[in-house]
Design a protein around this nucleic acid. Structure first.
Lengths: 173, 173
DNA sequence: CTGATGTTTCAATAATTTTTGAACTGAGGC
DNA sequence: GCCTCAGTTCAAAAATTATTGAAACATCAG
């Protein structure tokens, strides 16, 4: 579909060029892309993570960009996302100019951090609103069935908020 | 942004018109929309569910369309989605022509069904691919660190698949 | 069977999200 | 200070996803 025009990737200035992904790398990337999709994480982010995950050592910015054939902007934003969610950490050797990236040791912890950042704010923000909706229904003398539903929703929300810090401990514990 | 042109909703032929959502209904809808967003469920679907959730009795197609001011197509697709995921069930009174909808008793069960349908297929489909990626890495004599990562990923996947039927029992148990 | 009603389908359109890349910033090195 | 390198920002373009609505289909009453 796309014309085979030189994308910015593939060759940087007159610098080194990078080989495209190998079949086994593509397969893993597909898996991560799919899983990420469920959580609403963009493809490019999943691809970066997958590449770091199958790579032997940490990779620098240009390697990531080159091997994935993706724009600087995407690599920068993707790494920012992964950093923010503690899914990736940088290893800057002393004297070196550029940062090199590798996946955080525990993928489980990474996923937890990701879920946290998505679900918790929603629950927190919803709390007062849900209470108001329930109070409103009671005041209006709504059907018992509706009141019951809204009560249950409130209880759930509260319990989830109480449990959250236990199940999904904040960074550093 | 949109011109205030008569959308198909609001008035059907010369039929009854429906009042727009009340503030308390909007608040609940916002909550469901947010939560749905995390799972990648479209806004229109969440809105339908929210409306049924705060309503006293089952609602028919036209009521849903009218109160939400949304197209027939969206209502139809939205109900299909909710039906497919067992989040909603229809109550057709004998002799009545139209179906009337209400939320499934357990929201918990509904969410479980939803997750099931998203996560399980991904895990299943990934299984052989992941095994291949690992075998490949072993054969190529990849770094022990990489092998270890890929092994862990495989173990996870397998365990998740084993546990799935226990934690997320298929419909009818 | 026929007409009316209720629902689904799906191509076109609209809205949203993601990606790109060029301009910009900041940190060293000289 | 000035230049280069490393990375960020963000407006515009591309890609994706959701919604619309008209036409097709289905079902039931008469």
């Amino acid at each position: 579909m796309k014309p085979p025009s030189e994308k910015s990737a593939g060759r940087r200035k007159s610098g080194p060029s990078f080989e495209p992904l190998q079949p086994h790398e593509i397969e893993l990337a597909d898996f991560f892309v799919r899983m990420a999709g469920i959580l609403g994480v963009p493809r490019s982010v999943a691809e970066i993570y997958a590449l770091l995950y199958v790579s032997s050592g940490p990779l620098d910015f240009d390697h990531i960009q080159g091997r994935l054939g993706m724009s600087k902007g995407s690599v920068s934003q993707g790494l920012k996302f992964l950093r923010d969610h503690e899914m990736v950490l940088s290893v800057k050797e002393k004297g070196a100019r550029r940062e090199r990236w590798q996946p955080t040791p525990s993928l489980a912890a990474s996923l937890v951090a990701l879920l946290r950042s998505q679900v918790l704010p929603a629950l927190e923000q919803a709390q007062p609103g849900l209470q108001r909706v329930l109070a409103d229904a009671q005041q209006r003398g709504a059907q018992p069935e509706v009141i019951e539903r809204l009560s249950r929703l409130n209880r759930w929300n509260s319990r989830a908020l109480e449990l959250a810090p236990l199940l999904l401990p904040p960074p550093g514990s």
